[in-house]
Design a protein around this nucleic acid. Structure first.
Lengths: 232, 232
DNA sequence: CGGTTTTTTCACCGCTTTTTCACCGCGCAA
DNA sequence: TTGCGCGGTGAAAAAGCGGTGAAAAAACCG
């Protein structure tokens, strides 16, 4: 879904300068040239983000900020020539999420836009492959939707494998990470844990799909979901 | 509840300058002086906000940023002498929520802290599940509409569990939060309190529905009716 | 001050996990 | 073929953890 950005600035030059850059990043752009038009446009466009100038006819930036905040939590970045401490504090305390002083570097504006938009999302730190879901924040592993109970060591080893998913991890590495550096030679531990993990996680423990043995090298966690995302 | 802020900076002068100002605003302040300590402190303190310097021994600010982002959405404000466009963009794209160039105006920092914390807040003073209602603002717990009398320690432990509801909290974490860091090994306390809480809150204390034990890991407060099969 | 509640401490029990050890089977090279 | 290294299997011993109960100590309150 394309994200929509509303630019509110009475200087057509600014709008003209920013708009193409935003479009190039894949945003949809709308513009308004004074405070009242801004509120109308806000209701109509329902933008994901507002770029707001402070000095404007009809209704100042602060006023626009307050009005928007009364009805929505849409992020607002104030962009203004006014760089005084008081202006910045006032804007932020009236609902602005960020404040950028003109003249600004375009790439910084874009980065701040990304940062502010990123916050709204609730990223799921979930690792999924086929019938396995690993929720690293809640320390929970689901297999076909059913929770699988793992012991601390099992979970730690799994985490180590998943951290290097699709890459090979040696038994030595695993032992050092999970048990500690002084256990570097106790690679026997790993055998047992790997087996228990396979019994608990693999559809057919005798022919593993996820926890693959790379002979004479180590183990590899196979992420079957080949979905590779391409961030901006 | 007091909001906790973690300052990460290797310059004691900066820490000394900022800390009192933050305390005066009613924040709890913790500090770490290099990247590795920062991550350890982060896990222990679980701050609501991180103030992060970029240039540090052990592990740079960007690295800290990434590590924190892997496990949490806690807001991060980078505070650095490096004001170059590339530094700002890099930090923001690696998970920072805001970027402030040193030297900065204290009131601006405070305003940006307020702005960033304001977003994160999703106030839900009432937690309800099945026949339990927990009013975190009034420190009151209702069970089937009837108030349950909890001792201060019982309530503190319950609050700690509820704060991480559906996530696992270790006995060590609970003890450190409720009794203080110096009690980190006195996990025996927790056993007793958990038992009393179960007696007071659970319909069937022998088979808990809310305060679940995650064996060898810790405890979890179960919000939704996430049916977890348990052998009887 | 005395009585009550709350917190701390301790010992025991049963269960799960971890560790340890011996053995098996396969592939590979001498 | 035989010997060897590597990884899988199985089971039993050891260790650790959590639940329980109860009593001592401390805090609270009129």
């Amino acid at each position: 879904m394309k994200q929509r950005i509303l630019i509110v600035d009475d200087d057509p030059g600014i709008v003209a300068a920013i708009t193409p850059a935003l479009r190039a990043q894949g945003y949809e752009v709308a513009a308004a040239h004074d405070g009242e038009l801004a509120l109308a446009a806000f209701r109509q466009v329902e933008p994901h983000l507002v770029l707001l100038d402070l000095v404007m006819p009809k209704l100042g930036g602060i006023g626009v900020c307050q009005q928007i905040r009364q009805q929505s939590a849409t992020p607002i970045i104030v962009v203004s020539v006014k760089g005084a401490e008081a202006d910045i504090v006032t804007a932020l305390d009236n609902g602005a999420d960020d404040y950028l002083v003109k003249p600004f570097r375009l790439s910084e504006l874009l980065a701040r836009i990304r940062a502010v938009l990123r916050r709204g999302r609730t990223p799921q730190p979930l690792i999924e492959c086929a019938d396995l879901v690993i929720d690293t924040t809640r320390r929970i592993v689901l297999r076909q939707g059913q929770p699988v109970s793992l012991t601390p060591i099992e979970y730690a080893v799994l985490a180590e494998l998943v951290a290097h998913r699709n890459g090979v991890v040696t038994a030595r590495q695993i032992v050092q990470r999970v048990w500690g550096p002084q256990y570097a030679d106790a690679t026997d531990y790993v055998k047992g844990v790997i087996r228990r993990l396979r019994v608990k996680l693999e559809p057919d423990p005798a022919h593993p799909r996820y926890i693959i043995t790379e002979p004479h090298v180590g183990y590899r966690f196979n992420d079957a979901s080949g979905a590779v995302s391409s961030p901006s």
